[in-house]
């Protein structure tokens, strides 16, 4: 589904001493099927933005279009529920939302709320637990008996079981160890391709943004600071520094190479082994 923000502003507690403008005239367009990374510091408005994507918040001004759904200040709430089925949100530390007696029931909770039939729920539960790489035996266990990493996967499976077309991820790897982080991100990346999802990833990690996203939006104080393809956006050092973000490490290194050795090697998502080969060729003077 295409996602469009048209001049969206959001104000918390308007007309009180606590009034706070979280988004200001934000406009952008996300093409159906793309993988977008939204980057910005705490307070930049990214969590407010994310809550517009399934109608948890309505813009104070402007309009959000998600597929055929339109969310604006005046709009009616009637079809919000079906929007929530189509746009699944994985919140930060999603394991905090687990509550059922068994893993199976918890994964099936979303679909049940959207009146999916029992047989279908069963099928989706099976598929979701496989998708997050957990053994089927866990289905009958209590979610509270699992390790932290397993709980995270169960919570993610609960969102996948809704079979959303848009997947919104709010720092899905926070608090995991490096191996867990990589596994979870690779899993989302595979799902994105396989299910032809539109994925919106809110992250702090420039490395993840570079590796997985095909479009980047950087926020600053509720406004759009930068937008574009990763290889165009993530190389603009000065502009990134204005929002206290770093250029991804590999790009930093390559600009170091250019400065020190005078050779420029362009980054085009090559892996470290390939990069090493190019460097060796350069050092040996083969070019």
């Amino acid at each position: 589904m295409d996602i469009t923000f048209k001049d969206v502003s959001y104000i918390y507690q308007p007309n009180t001493p606590f009034e706070h403008r979280a988004l200001s005239n934000l406009s952008f367009h996300i093409r159906s099927g793309s993988f977008v990374a939204v980057i910005g510091h705490t307070g930049s408005g990214k969590s407010t933005l994310l809550q517009h994507l399934n109608g948890l918040l309505r813009p104070t001004a402007g309009e959000v279009d998600i597929g055929s759904y339109k969310i604006s200040a005046e709009g009616k709430t009637k079809d919000i529920k079906s929007l929530r089925e189509k746009a699944g949100v994985v919140f930060q530390y999603p394991e905090h939302q687990l509550f059922e007696e068994t893993v199976e029931k918890d994964i099936g909770f979303g679909p049940l709320n959207f009146h999916v039939e029992q047989e279908e729920i069963k099928r989706r539960t099976q598929e979701a637990i496989e998708a997050v790489n957990l053994p089927e035996e866990l289905l009958q266990r209590s979610p509270f008996d699992l390790s932290g990493g397993q709980m995270r996967r169960v919570a993610i499976a609960g969102v996948l079981a809704m079979e959303p077309e848009v997947l919104v991820l709010d720092e899905p790897t926070a608090g995991l160890d490096p191996r867990g982080q990589r596994e979870i991100m690779d899993m989302f990346s595979a799902l994105h391709k396989e299910k032809k999802l539109t994925t919106v990833l809110v992250t702090h990690s420039m490395e993840d943004a570079l590796r997985y996203a095909d479009h980047i939006i950087i926020l600053k104080d509720g406004r759009k600071h930068m937008e574009g393809p990763p290889l165009e956006v993530l190389v603009r050092k000065e502009e990134l520094e204005q929002v206290q973000l770093d250029v991804p490490e590999v790009i930093q290194f390559l600009s170091g190479v250019e400065e020190k050795l005078g050779y420029s090697i362009s980054y085009h998502n090559q892996d470290i082994a390939q990069l090493a080969k190019e460097l060796v060729a350069m050092v040996k003077g083969g070019r």
């Binding site: 949100v89 909770f109 979303g110």
Partner: peptide, 16 residues
């Protein structure tokens, strides 16, 4: 704050 977060997460899973 926690109550708000959890109720949003569950609302996203279709709880009304």
């Amino acid at each position: 704050q926690e109550t708000e977060k959890i109720s949003k997460a569950q609302a996203s899973r279709g709880v009304d």
